[in-house]
């Protein structure tokens, strides 16, 4: 019974069918099977946030979900969000503000940021910091990230900061 399980799901809008071992987590499935290496693995115990992806529209830790649990689910990764243009403005704000250094946390950070902006169009800095509280960044000290998200929120509301 530790045999592979067939799953069918949508990843970045494409139908994916695969046979996976039950123990394979979603992060490793995306990275190793689908070669979507933008989903990063920083701790594998659900703390660092680098592996954050969207499952059926909600952000989740892909190291804390089994690939077999994604049967019929719609997964979106950083590659998908980038190609669709959904977060182009956010990425642009990150670039302008240098809100990334090594970039390892960035895909997860962008996922969390976009999640916040969808739920809360005008978050204050404290709210932004709170929403990112599960995403580690060891390089920036967070301020540039908060700035970039804040300016994106302003821009989306058609106002200048």
């Amino acid at each position: 019974m530790t045999a592979t399980v067939a799953i069918a799901l949508s990843v970045n809008g494409e139908l994916v069918e695969a046979n996976v071992l039950p123990r394979l987590n979603l992060a490793d499935f995306l990275r190793e099977h689908l070669k979507l290496t933008g989903t990063h693995v920083g701790c594998e115990h659900g703390v660092c946030g680098a592996c954050t992806v969207r499952v059926n529209g909600d952000i989740v830790r892909s190291c804390l979900m089994l690939a077999v649990q994604t049967q019929n689910a719609a997964i979106e990764t950083i590659e998908g969000l980038s190609d669709s243009g959904e977060i182009a403005d956010l990425q642009s704000a990150f670039r302008e503000r240098n809100a990334l250094q090594c970039g390892f946390c960035t895909p997860g950070m962008l996922m969390a940021a976009q999640d916040l902006l969808k739920q809360s169009p005008c978050p204050d800095r404290e709210r932004i910091r709170e929403h990112l509280s599960g995403n580690y960044c060891r390089c920036t000290g967070y301020q540039a990230i908060v700035d970039a998200i804040e300016s994106t929120a302003w821009a989306r509301r058609g106002r200048r900061p």
């Binding site: 933008g38 989903t39 950083i78 590659e79 980038s82 670039r95 990334l100 970039g103 960035t106």
Partner: peptide
């Protein structure tokens, strides 16, 4: 930076 921001 796009490379890093797009997970590439």
């Amino acid at each position: 930076l796009d490379r890093l921001m797009q997970g590439r």
